[in-house]
Amino acid sequence: MTEKPAEKTEVKLEIGRFGKFLQDNGIKSKRQSDSNNVETIVIDAKDLEPAMRLLKTSSETTLNFLLCVSGVDYADKIDSVYHLWSYEHNDALVIKVELPKNNMTNTQTPCMSSISNFWPAANWHERETYDLVGIRYLKHPYLRRILNPWDWEGHPLRRDYKQLIDALNDKNPHSFR
């Protein structure tokens, strides 16, 4: 695909409320441009688990509603995006973990740690992200494909995914594209 990924503004942004909270607890984060006034931060893959534990349980934040975990395949990296809300307050936070690609092929998967051991909501979302985008969540209790059959090849939402053409779908494979 020749499309370019979303624009990246290299403007230095001020640290936000949750970024500051994480910094106080010794977790580094980088602020990204907001979408619709929701704070968006980028953190390291190794910091994700402690950061999530803190954000979920700490009485200061209580971001205890994990909306979704989504994987986004860019040209040079794969993002794992976490949307966090709170059941009690009106807070919202978007956490991104960037995993560089380094000439990775379709069958190879980037790895990062899973959060579903302490947050059951992430379980199915991580399985789905593994299935479609191909991020391998380490220490996940049951990391198997969830939407596609178990022996499916490739990760369909990767940009370089070539779909299987066989007797079940050889009719006009590019009909409406």
């Binding site: 979303a6 624009e7 979704c68």
Partner: peptide, 13 residues
């Protein structure tokens, strides 16, 4: 979105 007539990624929750 990357500004084209297709979305770059759509994720449903």
């Amino acid at each position: 979105s990357n500004g084209s007539d297709k979305a770059y990624r759509i994720k449903w929750r």
